[in-house]
């Protein structure tokens, strides 16, 4: 049964928050959980969408964006967090905002064993590198949590992250 409220619209709600916060650069390595949000951003001429070869490129890019006075956000899957760890030192040392929106794999009912180690470690390693991490495990929690993540990044000049739980997105089953 489909929910009657707008809970399923959370990608559109995130898009609305990106607009409210004046986000102009969206750096990403695609994840299925972000596909609807990515489509909304691609359709917006005021947002520069940059697909990366690896997630850590986004850390450097958003630092450059801030140098030039533009706000940005990094979209990725939890496995991509592992590709970012040392580069997070750039935002810490320079004291610059770095909001990240992470869709979780290896988190809740995962099918693929390769996703589990990084999924299980995502919050720990981000926090070990000085990132403020908040989780959203229901559709209703996502927009307020992303809002807080954007606000804390731009109010306190540091890396912040929302982790969107696999319980919301659903586990990929590969037909099993």
């Amino acid at each position: 049964m489909q929910p009657e409220n707008s809970a399923e619209d959370w990608p559109d709600q995130i898009y609305g928050l990106l607009k409210d916060h004046g986000i102009r650069q969206v750096a990403l390595v695609p994840d299925a959980g972000h596909s609807r949000l990515i489509k909304r951003c691609l359709a917006d001429n005021d947002i520069k969408v940059v697909t990366l070869t690896t997630e850590e490129e986004g850390i450097g890019m958003l630092f450059g964006a801030w140098l030039g006075g533009e706000k940005g956000v990094l979209l990725m899957q939890s496995s991509g967090v592992g590709n970012c760890i040392n580069m997070l030192s750039v935002a810490i040392a320079h004291r610059t905002p770095l909001p990240m929106i992470v869709t979780m794999r290896g988190d809740y009912g995962e099918f693929n064993p390769f996703q589990v180690p990084m999924g299980n470690a995502t919050q720990t390693v981000l926090e070990a590198m000085g990132t403020l991490v908040k989780r959203a495990d229901t559709p209703e929690d996502i927009a307020p949590t992303v809002n807080a993540t954007l606000r804390m990044a731009y109010n306190s000049y540091r890396p912040t992250a929302t982790l969107i739980g696999q319980r919301v997105i659903g586990a990929k089953t590969f037909g099993k």
Binding site: G64, V90, A93
Partner: peptide, 22 residues
């Protein structure tokens, strides 16, 4: 001038973010 003390591998992407912003 923005001389880097770390972030090895990131300089070109920093340039991209800055170039897009300005």
């Amino acid at each position: 001038n923005l001389p880097l003390w770390g972030g090895m591998g990131g300089a070109a992407m920093m340039g991209l973010g800055l170039a897009l912003a300005q």
